[in-house]
Design a protein around this nucleic acid. Structure first.
Lengths: 225, 225
DNA sequence: TCAAAAGTGTTCCTGTTACACCCATGA
DNA sequence: TCATGGGTGTAACAGGAACACTTTTGA
């Protein structure tokens, strides 16, 4: 067996990218920026960048999210590290990817001169992506879908108060299948994931919906939904 | 909000560490090396090291595993990236951690002059660990425990042929609870995870045990066990 | 009074759990 | 013939899935 030796000096840059999701207009959307710099001009990408010397990757992800897109207060979770030596044509860069989840109401998009555009894209029809960002988004979607089933992550996609129908829609859209209304309500209530607030939302020519809140707005592992 | 700026130059080293598990003597064991270099002299650590300029982290993990411990042909899976700026006293190093699983028969341990010792330690009583390796092992154990329940990973902890009792022991040891023999056998067979080979192992003053093999020796997602 | 979404229970079915004895071998 | 671990079926139970009508409001 040949023994590849360890190089005397290593010159690898460390970046972070955040796949930001929200649910909007009946779709799971990812936030992408359009690049200006060659050789990626016109391509879309997940927001990201090089981390600072004394920053954690998560701190860097938050900083970059804020400056590049205007998104703050997202729920962040480490996804995976992408490290193909050829993933960036301009040099060796490994990227620690995060999944970021936000309630769509919260977001006020902001552009910077560094990028041509910032937009939400439905995950079902993404544009051409730079780097390995296509894989990255795919892995992120899989992770989100899995976590939705055994955690209470959905809280991070909704405002503090919401109706059970809205919560159910989050599940249906992300899981990509219909969910039975009665069984769904029974479960989220029996499992103690959400609690009623007693207040109602009057809105439209129909019976008002009770507003609910998550019992805990932090990651919690639960039974199968 | 203050805007921390991105540093002009970044000088961060990228390493990889592999938490190697096997099941042995009725315990889940992790392979650790004992360090010589200051300031970690005498401390134990998960095997790892700086990656090469053109290597992926997984390739580096395999290389390091082989040279530092003699373990080859392990099943490797990316775990998480550890990036606390202070995790290494000697400078900024982020580490992409892997979980490695091996059948205990396979392993012939090998020491190198770089380290004082290499040994299996029961995960229930680990020695003092360097860096953030205590957390790293804890995260790895959690991951392994979770994956055992919804994948066929156990294949990587067993030789090609094994008895159902041996398989059951893997589950009991890692999950830390007894498993009903009849229900266990029914499930692994009904789910088509393992198949009988027709051959039997004669060994001891008792009825011989049929040998089984995993249908697939690669990651597969299955129903709850 | 009509349209629209909210809200609510029960039955059936499937999969999980609990459990105890006979079998084949080597000593 | 005895000790040892290997191997097998069934009944009770719990949780999940399927399913349709009544309620409250605004127009």
């Amino acid at each position: 067996m040949t023994q590849p030796k360890q190089p005397a000096e290593q010159s690898i840059k460390v970046a972070t990218d955040a796949v930001i999701f929200t649910v909007r207009r009946g779709e799971l959307m990812a936030l992408l920026i359009q690049m200006k710099k060659v050789p990626y001009t016109g391509k879309w990408a997940v927001p990201g960048g090089i981390i600072g010397q004394a920053e954690t990757t998560e701190q860097a992800a938050r900083r970059i999210l804020t400056t590049q897109t205007g998104v703050s207060d997202a729920h962040l979770e480490q996804l995976a590290t992408f490290d193909d030596p050829k993933r960036d044509k301009l040099g060796r860069v490994i990227s620690v990817a995060y999944v970021a989840l936000v309630a769509s109401e919260k977001v006020i998009l902001k552009t910077t001169e560094k990028y041509a555009d910032v937009r939400w894209w439905p995950t079902s029809k993404l544009p051409a992506l730079a780097y390995d960002h296509k894989d990255m988004v795919a892995v992120a979607v899989d992770r989100l879908r899995a976590k939705l089933e055994y955690t209470n992550v959905a809280w991070s996609l909704l405002p503090p108060q919401f109706t059970l129908t809205e919560l159910q829609e989050i599940y249906e859209i992300i899981l990509g299948r219909p969910v039975d209304k009665r069984n769904f309500r029974r479960r989220v209530l029996d499992l103690g994931i959400v609690v009623g607030t007693g207040t109602k939302r009057m809105g439209g020519a129909h019976r008002p919906a009770e507003l609910y809140a998550f019992k805990r707005r932090s990651m919690e592992y639960i039974e199968v939904l």
